[in-house]
Design a protein around this nucleic acid. Sequence first.
DNA 1: CCATTTCTTGGTCGCATGACCAAGATTCTA
DNA 2: TAGAATCTTGGTCATGCGACCAAGAAATGG
Lengths: 214, 214
Amino acid sequence: MRPRNGATDQKSRSFIEAARRGQIVQAAIETLADVGYAKASFARIAEHAGISAGLISYHFGHKAELFQQVVADVNALMDGWLTEHIGDAGTYREALQRLIEGFVLFCDSHRAHVLALGQVLAGIGGQENGELARSQREQSVGQLEQMLREGQEHGEFRDFSPRLMAVTLLGSIEAIPAELFARPGTDVAAYAKELSMTYDIAVRRSRLSRITRA
Amino acid sequence: MRPRNGATDQKSRSFIEAARRGQIVQAAIETLADVGYAKASFARIAEHAGISAGLISYHFGHKAELFQQVVADVNALMDGWLTEHIGDAGTYREALQRLIEGFVLFCDSHRAHVLALGQVLAGIGGQENGELARSQREQSVGQLEQMLREGQEHGEFRDFSPRLMAVTLLGSIEAIPAELFARPGTDVAAYAKELSMTYDIAVRRSRLSRITRA
DNA sequence: CCATTTCTTGGTCGCATGACCAAGATTCTA
DNA sequence: TAGAATCTTGGTCATGCGACCAAGAAATGG
């Protein structure tokens, strides 16, 4: 009867414990995507995983801890996916395009993950516990912002507020899961392509400006 | 002891009942904005309004009914605001710009309303009850989509998928409340201006195309 | 093989919630 | 003003929740 391990992840973690935690997090993700944040109780998650509800308490202790793990897992998965997808883009324009396309494709192939992430961040967002949601958002915006700013400094992007553009872009891509859910028949590849092109138009230095600048 | 009136709004509604309903809805909006969907219980809303909790049950019966009214009220307010703000725009480009700027200004001057709306739609979104959230979203997207399509037909906008652009734009403007909350010091007028300009760039027919077309 | 640790179950506990109700207060109406 | 309709309160009720616990099952390792 030991676990109670929150952040103290001192490499002590038996094989079986790691497996259980993974199973529970996965079940939580699917349950969140199915029934939403409000109805994602330990009982429902446990039922979905085919285990006892008390077992979740044993491995996670607090409910917030489980949801933090959900956020962390989905985040790590998405980061890896996007990093791989951006790859060795030669220009900032290309990197931005690949980022957008990569995200759309990720939403398509990991719908439950993205829906679950949204549910958790929205669910805990209104309260003072929303520290997680706020820092999460700030981090996403910050990364995009920096990328856009560097693109400007390299003369690839026109003059705009990187912060505003980052917020705007983030909103656009966060709206995608809902759209794919509302219209399951959407041609995802075409969607990705057109969205990235739209933002390319919005951020790139105009042809006339480029002529002027040269 | 009669009310129990859901949709049956047969113009019978005493002055005092209408006033109470309004007061309760207003308290619900402020409570939702304060503590979020999950913690917006009858008890808390009643406390915020300085009335008994049972009184809410008397006037609304179901909790969903109250939240529907919240959505309806905020929606009506926003529709009126936007309609007035768009006014008699001469071109679709101008109408789109005014729409975007109007929305940003609305978010700024009605933060509680917008936050509450988001909380309700997100809170009930995951479940099968999400009918409301879905139809609400579909309606918003639909209106934007039609406006964009007409702009294309009039030759003001370039060739893009109106549906995708509508979803993208909706995401961008729905992200604004969170940004204003995260950075209270934002220059809202400047934000509105630059966002509308950004989308103008994204949707308008390019100068070269216009030359080609002429 | 046995002793110890880890894992799992099923159950109880207190708490918050939405719905409901009986009774009193208030307003309306004739 | 008297009676009826409406409004409001405070309370009870069943439900579902997260947390916790005791006891047994399973794995571990000496």
